[in-house]
Design a protein around this nucleic acid. Structure first.
Lengths: 249, 249
DNA sequence: ATCATACAAATTGTCGACAATCAACAAATG
DNA sequence: CATTTGTTGATTGTCGACAATTTGTATGAT
């Protein structure tokens, strides 16, 4: 049930999140945030014209934004039929997204070891502090935000082009998932693990780093086919308006 | 050294690969193919206006195409400065792209087992046959093409939304890589492995399938940190046009 | 009533023109 | 001579109008 109240994404591009850069870039952030926070529900249609008027811009930037979101797996669009918000199945998160994330992070952290500066470490410390605050306030969304920001900093500073690029297309889905269902650990534990992660980075010891990282992510992703079949994806598997053409084509 | 000869991507959108769909879609395919086959070299700039006139379309479609290619890791673009062709380092292919590919395929093949039809199997058989021909003619490009098409069919028919989506953003880089450097196996072996893969699929036995798949991809991707450090990426790590302001020529 | 066809509404795809931004160069300034 | 400050040319970003396509609805025949 998509809420039927008026739902204009809060800002009109210029105002609010007065970030920089091209309009399209800003539109991406606004819409992404709106989808992740559940302002738009899976299955809901996103019409270019509507969004453009709501956001006070033309269709061009909106169009680009939608394509970007499509590549982040938040929407799916078919030619001449438009875009609809997409959900993620619990199974795909556990068996695909998390393992991929693990691959990306193992590689990134290894490379980041040799490249991170004190300024970077400071920024990581800041995120850990933010997590503490969020955990204390039992504020899941805020914790998830700092969590992913922490990882983004490390991965970005690894300087590995494709790894960073792929990460940027993976994290929105993971964030959307965690945002709704949290994870298997309690908030305090998550904070603690990141503190350890930061400490490991500062030692610049590859072995220790690897160990700490696996410890952090492992629990969330079972060896693969361990999890069974009667796993009805309670999650939004996106109900595309199934078209019943007639008999098979 | 980007070849300086006139290099118009062969077709003018309407002609040649008379596929269907919106112009932008066609432009993506033309440019992707051009990049993968090395018609454009890493580091080379892609100017919207130039491409649009060459392809006989307006800048709109070209713009979208470039964004798509950016999400496939074939180009990178910065605001107000345009897009340049991107290369892949040998290290990232081995440590990141291949492992991710493995994750995607394990999951897809497992799901495809229960969903593939005889028509699908037939299509797979066709690809194997094409591989045979290519191997016999020692035609690497053609073999790579059939190879990836084979995997694309299986993954697509798994019906796993995000898995398919991510695969579509990963394979172009892998294809570009294989296209240039082949792989560690000889052509005949590759063909044989796919024949086995197809047979395994037809048995619809999960265990056998998994075994056969791991066998197929494993060799290409060492356990992780096995590969050493003195690994100068002989590969194109994209030389961004280093700005020589004055001094150093 | 059921099915096929023709039309109408809604929405995306494309185009051409204009504005904003950046890199390089030239001139002025100390 | 080094540094700053216009200025210019090239290229991307944005806009509004128009064309192409799909979907839903009405209409008519069987």
């Amino acid at each position: 049930m998509a809420a039927s109240v008026e739902r204009t994404p809060s800002v009109v591009v210029d105002a609010g999140a007065g970030k920089g850069g091209p309009r399209g870039q800003q539109v991406v952030e606004i819409l992404r945030s709106a989808i992740i926070t559940g302002e738009y529900d899976p299955g809901e249609r996103l019409i270019e014209a509507t969004l453009s008027t709501e956001l006070g811009t033309s269709r061009g930037p909106v169009r680009e934004a939608l394509r970007q979101l499509e590549n982040e797996g938040l929407v799916v669009s078919v030619p001449y039929r438009g875009a609809v918000v997409l959900g993620v199945s619990d199974e795909e998160v556990q068996d695909v997204l998390i393992p991929i994330r693990l691959t990306l992070e193992r590689y990134s952290f290894a490379h980041a070891l040799e490249r991170m500066t004190d300024a970077d470490f400071a920024e990581l410390g800041k995120q850990v502090w933010l997590m503490e605050q969020a955990a204390a306030a039992d504020d899941l969304p805020r914790l998830v935000e700092a969590d992913l920001r922490f990882h983004d900093i490390v991965i970005s500073s690894s300087g590995q082009t494709h790894t960073v690029q792929i990460w940027r297309t993976i994290w929105p889905r993971i964030r959307a998932y965690f945002y709704r269902y949290g994870r298997g650990k309690d908030l305090a534990t998550v904070v603690e693990e990141h503190r350890d992660l930061l400490a490991a980075l500062q030692t610049r010891d590859p072995a220790l780093m690897r160990a700490q990282l696996d410890l952090h992510i492992a629990v969330s992703s079972p060896p693969s086919d361990a999890r069974g079949k009667p796993k009805r994806s309670k999650t939004t598997t996106t109900k595309l308006p199934v078209r019943v053409t007639k008999a098979g084509t």
